[in-house]
């Protein structure tokens, strides 16, 4: 079972962007921790690693992998496992997380989080891949739910059942992306509140929030795109409130990866996350 001691604090955090380095050191409030994408810190030296070392002296760091391809049909890349092991070993972050998705096939990395069907077969493979990763880095990881634009006919399980079973088989914890829940539920026509009802909130070590864009499919049905390029939408904040009511306070991350704003705008989003936390902490 996932142990939440020595994990991230139940405070707002932000996805770290190098242009905010000075602002974060001078005026971080209300941000209490930072998340970095693992693959951006796998060079041999230079500014990225120097900044990460400096930040890790001031803040708990969450390392968020975007390239392991845990949901891939291929075996995990042993070179990449070794890189992750090296990073986790020197940085000793408060948390490590990755995605329920695939991104590499046949040694080609596609730089996107691609979907997989939810079946007994994929369940076994994902749990086995997580087991390999956890053995490599010597600690449990958190697995994040995807944003989905389509579904697989071959799926035989719901996403929440799949995540619960993966956690049971591998001993991993979960990273609940509330925006992804809202995006997927809207895109695939189910209730986001129902998803939260079914989701094993006791396994959550971190919550993600991010902005999405609105589009539509061939039939004119809404198609939300998980763009991380704007403020978190109001219905997503409402879904967060519902989640926190059931889960209690959790580490809350604001993700803003494209059209990255100046620090005050990002800090204001983190302030909104602080308010949501204050409601359940009181």
């Amino acid at each position: 079972m996932f142990d939440q001691t020595n994990a991230l604090p139940p405070l707002p955090g932000v996805g770290y962007k190098p242009q905010h380095f000075s602002d974060i050191l001078e005026n971080p409030a209300p941000v209490g921790w930072l998340e970095v994408h693992a693959e951006n810190y796998m060079g041999d030296g230079g500014r990225p690693l120097a900044q990460l070392r400096a930040l890790s002296e001031r803040f708990p760091i969450s390392v968020h992998g975007v390239g392991l391809s845990i949901g891939g049909e291929d075996r995990l890349d042993p070179d990449h496992l070794a890189r992750l092991k090296h990073l986790v070993s020197w940085l000793n972050p408060a948390s490590f997380s990755e995605h329920l998705a695939w991104s590499t096939h046949d040694s080609h990395f596609l730089n996107d989080l691609l979907p997989l069907p939810y079946t007994k077969e994929t369940l076994t493979r994902v749990a086995d891949h997580i087991d390999q990763l956890q053995n490599a880095i010597g600690r449990p990881m958190l697995l994040e739910n995807p944003s989905s634009y389509l579904a697989f006919e071959q799926s035989t399980m719901s996403e929440t059942d799949f995540l619960r079973d993966v956690a049971r088989l591998s001993g991993c914890g979960l990273l609940l992306d509330v925006n992804n829940v809202f995006v997927s539920a809207t895109n695939l026509g189910y209730s986001p509140q129902g998803y939260i009802e079914d989701y094993p909130l006791d396994l959550v070590g971190e919550i993600h929030l991010g902005g999405h864009d609105e589009d539509h499919d061939d039939h004119g049905a809404p198609l939300l795109i998980d763009s991380h390029g704007r403020e978190v939408a109001d219905p997503v904040w409402a879904l967060l409130d519902l989640t926190l009511e059931k889960s209690g306070p959790k580490p809350l991350l604001i993700e803003w990866d494209t059209d990255v704003p100046d620090w005050p705008v990002l800090a204001a989003e983190a302030g909104r996350a602080a308010s949501a936390l204050a409601q359940v902490s009181a």
Binding site: Y149, F152, N187
Partner: peptide
């Protein structure tokens, strides 16, 4: 085998992934 929430063919929903990969 790729569908929307009602079992209809995924169509341009799949293009979201095409676009994400190419743009990124």
């Amino acid at each position: 085998g790729l569908v929307d929430g009602r079992g209809q063919a995924a169509g341009r929903r799949y293009d979201v992934y095409r676009n994400n990969v190419a743009v990124s």
